[in-house]
Design a protein around this nucleic acid. Sequence first.
DNA 1: GCTAGTTTTCGAACATGTTCGAAAAGTCGA
DNA 2: TCGACTTTTCGAACATGTTCGAAAACTAGC
Lengths: 222, 222
Amino acid sequence: MMEGMAAPERGRTGRPPRTSRAQILSAARELIDDEGWERLTMRKLAARAGVAPTTLYHHVRDREELLAALLDDYADRIPRRELPREPVERILAAATVMHDALAGWPWLVEVLTADDLIGDAALWMVEAIVDAAMEHGCPADEAVHLYRSVWYYTVGEILVRASADRKRAELDRPAYRDTVFRRLDKPELPRLSAIAGRWPALCAEDTYAYGLRALVEGLLTK
Amino acid sequence: MMEGMAAPERGRTGRPPRTSRAQILSAARELIDDEGWERLTMRKLAARAGVAPTTLYHHVRDREELLAALLDDYADRIPRRELPREPVERILAAATVMHDALAGWPWLVEVLTADDLIGDAALWMVEAIVDAAMEHGCPADEAVHLYRSVWYYTVGEILVRASADRKRAELDRPAYRDTVFRRLDKPELPRLSAIAGRWPALCAEDTYAYGLRALVEGLLTK
DNA sequence: GCTAGTTTTCGAACATGTTCGAAAAGTCGA
DNA sequence: TCGACTTTTCGAACATGTTCGAAAACTAGC
């Protein structure tokens, strides 16, 4: 038993596969297009792929890995825009492409679990950012810090916004009994009013660009 | 039927409760202490509370809300350290307290869904940061942008690190067949080597403070 | 005491992700 | 052709979160 790996076409043996990983992924894409990612269940996916549910697990570790794979090859298709030549602007542009591309996928909350990277496919953006930082004069390790900081900031913004949206959508969910009562058994909310007055209804979308520029400039003028 | 709300002790009627929300929360805390949050199932929790599983749903909307409530009253117990007087340092200190407190809860990934805020309890940190920013000369809306940026950055760092840890812990999970094979059917990883050389093994923990300061200073010198 | 109303509890059941072990369907060497 | 080996598929089953509807247990008015 050749545990784990097998040369792709080297004297294949065993039962011939009725389905492939690629087919499953593409069936998943169809299903998501049709019904949305929240309704992508393993059973439905199996049905669409014409296969038993358990068979999926031979091609995919679990649902999360499946979603991650979808995200990964989605990232692979992000158009590689022409980036500005000036380093700072180049970093901002690359980060923004990354951000905007990811922000369209609300199910990121369940998937965005890579450390440092989106996935193998989007490395060109990492490269662009690290390159630009070094061109600007950063030593390598600071360039990596910079990339990471940008990545943290971006992931945070996307996740916070995504779950805020989700929560808003859930407001008209059925039976959520005695919410009011529940709030009452808490101690007084401390000084909420003191802040509330200063909390103008700012469009959260504007914050990303605002903070991103500050972050990058702050990192580069060190 | 007084839909939803009921005055706490105003002529109570109906079947007397065998259990309270507070009891459930505290049973949940015990369970988490004993077995870790990943093993907190609604059924086990019900057993510990001496109640049928479905009864929980009368006191709690769902598992997520339960975890959020636990997080919230955890945040309530974060010791309020003395913060520095100088505004910039005060912001950094408040953000770091927030960060460190949250970073100890690996299940944040499933819970950190508040927009703008951790929960009702940790408002004092929001207040500290917004206050300091205004004291430094920011108008109110920029102070809010600043807080939000810091929050995004912090959430991002925590979540990315938490899931990186989780992934590392999962490496010795059972049957994850032909990972190697799967990597081979991808196109060549683009330019990975070009970056790899510049990717020193930097301690990811250092990045948080590094980027945070840059972010805040960048925002304040606008 | 009886009935109507109200709140809490619970048992049955469902959907879903996933594991497990065995069956199916081939290849290869004897 | 026959068995050993390998890979893929699948049915049964489990754990978990959750919904639904009805039963339980009490209070208040008659």
